[in-house]
């Protein structure tokens, strides 16, 4: 399998236009029209990879919201999902494994007028980046975290990841993983996230709408997106998910009720909820920084009045 060669994209002189990828449950407007502003190189993901669906939904959501690639910041983690850095063209920072969130928090504090989107994988975000995830939720930092949840470490050829079900046999756990999976929904809700959603790369129309809501939400938004890894995870496939996912709607769910959110967070195997699981409003982190009331930090003047500092501190 040539996955190692496919792992990183080759340099290309002229990025070709994005492919038209159609969704199975509803059609999207012509991809090339909507996505032109955000398109980069053609992806190196395996054919059938769940990342294609998420990539398309992200570009659709950004285009529908008329976001400007110049005036936003996208922070990528490391992984197959992180390789979207070359396939999505916007002001970006390609961070270290597990460190997308702290960089995003810093970027937001530096310029809180920019929409800040974080594109990470489950291993990246819930494993190495677990502590950053929970602390960013506590602070209600106004960033949107989109997690590609495929339950493996795909880029490094299939080791088990934090969201793998107990007993999953992988390259690193030939006899099945001992631990139970991390519960991202419960973790996010319990640590103070104010928008917690769940999506599926196999339903792009629904995902696009969900991502739009997540980015528009003022506060720490996390969307856990199920993404079949066709190469390394033959258990949690498209059909496996289609048998289990169902959509939350006002008729069957109230996202402002935390008790309903706890219930939904425990639905992890027989049936799996998609949509907005929890959404409340709370002041965002930068609301509590009076230094930023007038303008973003990056456009502020440096303090040069030494007398004032000496009088206060010396």
């Amino acid at each position: 399998m040539d996955n190692l060669k496919q792992a990183l994209p080759k340099a290309q002189k002229n990025p070709p236009p994005a492919p038209v990828v159609s969704s199975s449950s509803g059609s999207l407007p012509s991809a090339s029209k909507l996505h032109a502003a955000f398109s980069g190189y053609f992806p190196t993901w395996c054919p059938g990879c769940g990342n294609f669906g998420i990539w398309t939904a992200i570009k659709s959501a950004f285009s529908k919201m008329k976001l400007n690639p110049d005036k936003m910041a996208v922070v990528f983690g490391i992984g197959c999902s992180g390789n979207m850095n070359d396939f999505l063209w916007a002001n970006s920072f390609h961070a270290l494994h597990g460190r997308a969130i702290p960089n995003a928090v810093g970027i937001k504090i530096a310029n809180h007028s920019l929409p800040v989107i974080v594109i990470v994988g489950d291993g990246d975000c819930y494993g190495e980046g677990g502590n950053h995830f929970l602390h960013a939720a506590r602070g209600n930092h106004d960033i949107t975290v989109i997690v590609h949840d495929n339950r493996v470490y795909g880029l490094t050829t299939g080791q088990v990841a934090p969201t793998a079900y107990k007993g999953f046999k992988s390259r690193s756990t030939p006899n099945g993983i001992i631990e139970v999976p991390v519960n991202p929904i419960a973790l996010a809700v319990s640590q103070g996230a104010t928008f917690v959603g769940q999506g599926f790369s196999g339903d792009m129309a629904h995902l696009t709408q969900l991502l739009e809501s997540a980015v528009k939400h003022r506060g720490f938004s996390v969307v856990n997106v199920f993404q079949p890894c066709v190469t390394f995870n033959h258990v949690n496939s498209y059909s496996w998910y289609r048998e289990r996912v169902y959509k939350l709607a006002p008729e069957n769910h109230n996202p402002e009720d935390i008790n309903r959110a706890w219930e939904k967070s425990l639905e992890v195997e027989e049936k799996i909820p998609l949509g907005i699981i929890y959404q409340v409003e709370r002041p965002v982190y930068t609301d509590s920084l009076p230094q930023l009331a007038e303008k973003p930090l990056v456009f502020s003047e440096p303090v040069t009045d030494l007398e004032m500092l000496i009088n206060e501190f010396v």
Partner: peptide, 24 residues
């Protein structure tokens, strides 16, 4: 600095081309 007009670029922890795209 991101946020200015025409500032579009990528700061990349991978090795990169002059415009920031990943390269090997």
């Amino acid at each position: 600095i991101p946020g200015m007009e025409n500032s579009l670029h990528q700061a990349n922890s991978y090795e990169h081309l002059e415009d920031g795209h990943t390269t090997e």
